[in-house]
């Protein structure tokens, strides 16, 4: 198949995969600026595992309910617990993130072990990150989620930035830092829960880190970092889909590998500039 034929096939036969993965990358790319700057990369890793566990739990315990709803509920529950633990000083931040990550993975394995074989294959498909079979319903849900979450972030940008930069001083100025942190983590949780169900955990976790790291290497202003990170989130899924077709690879991991290659190039540019 020639390059043109590959592109035509993607656009005509898998438009939902193309648009969906771009929106997922764009949303995760924007949010990655906060995830990286707040040094909570493992929150992304943990919540993606929780989201997958939620899908598995839904299959196992609530076979007649929507997996989206159960996964979202479990992720938001994890967000509340994580946000509380991260703000308290009883356990170090590293330990909270490390323990919650490994607990989420262990739970996922245990739940999958007890799931019927037919459900396991669907969960494994999510873990594999095959973007090609995004449905119109999933695409609509993803676009609506991205629109609402980005609107919330733009509306409360100064609050999120101040609380992320210096939560103690923000508190002295009347900002309820705990509530803003909770809202922030809730938006991350919703994004992860919805996107993981559609594009897979590797894609979501990768795009919650790599775009912001790439943007901080190239941009000098915070505003430029937000723009560049969003762009870096949106671009690799397109290239990833093309390469996945050409080389017969799963599209999600290929998109992450493409984003990683962009990060490597950015680092080289920065190093030798």
């Amino acid at each position: 198949m020639s390059d043109i034929e590959i592109l035509r096939t993607i656009v005509t036969q898998f438009p939902f995969a193309l648009i969906g993965s771009v929106f997922a990358g764009l949303l995760c790319g924007y949010l990655s600026v906060y995830v990286v700057s707040k040094r909570v990369v493992f929150v992304g890793a943990t919540l993606t595992q929780v989201a997958v566990t939620g899908i598995a739990v839904a299959h196992l315990l609530f076979p007649h309910e929507s997996t989206d709803v159960v996964s979202l509920a479990l992720t938001l529950f994890a967000v509340v617990i994580l946000a509380q633990l991260l703000r308290s000083h009883d356990i170090s931040r590293d330990s909270v993130l490390g323990v919650s990550y490994v607990v989420a993975i262990a739970l996922r394995i245990l739940v999958i072990q007890k799931s019927p074989a037919s459900e396991v294959s669907e969960i494994e498909a999510i873990l594999k990150g095959d973007l090609l079979f995004i449905t119109q319903h999933q695409l609509s849900l993803l676009i609506a989620t991205a629109a609402v979450l980005l609107f919330i972030h733009l509306l409360f940008q100064k609050e999120f930035i101040f609380v992320s930069f210096d939560s103690e001083t923000a508190t002295t100025q009347g900002f309820k830092a705990g509530r803003w942190e909770m809202l922030f983590y809730a938006t991350i949780g919703i994004a992860i829960s919805v996107a993981t169900r559609i594009v897979g955990d590797v894609f979501v976790f990768g795009f919650l880190v790599i775009p912001a790291v790439t943007a901080t290497l190239l941009a000098r202003k915070v505003r430029s970092i937000f723009w560049l990170s969003t762009l870096v989130g949106a671009l690799p899924p397109i290239i990833g889909l093309y390469l996945a077709f050409k080389l017969d690879l799963p599209a999600g991991p290929t998109a992450v590998a493409t984003a990683s290659a962009m990060l490597a190039v950015s680092w080289i540019i920065k190093r030798f500039k």
């Binding site: 700057s37 040094r39 930069f165 001083t169 923000a170 009347g174 915070v222 970092i225």
Partner: peptide, 23 residues
């Protein structure tokens, strides 16, 4: 030392945060 930003906030950006509470 408690403020160690990864993002390249300018001095202007940082000082402007002091106005956020009044807005």
């Amino acid at each position: 030392d408690t403020i160690d930003p990864i993002m390249p906030f300018t001095v202007f950006d940082v000082v402007l945060m002091g106005r956020y509470g009044r807005l």
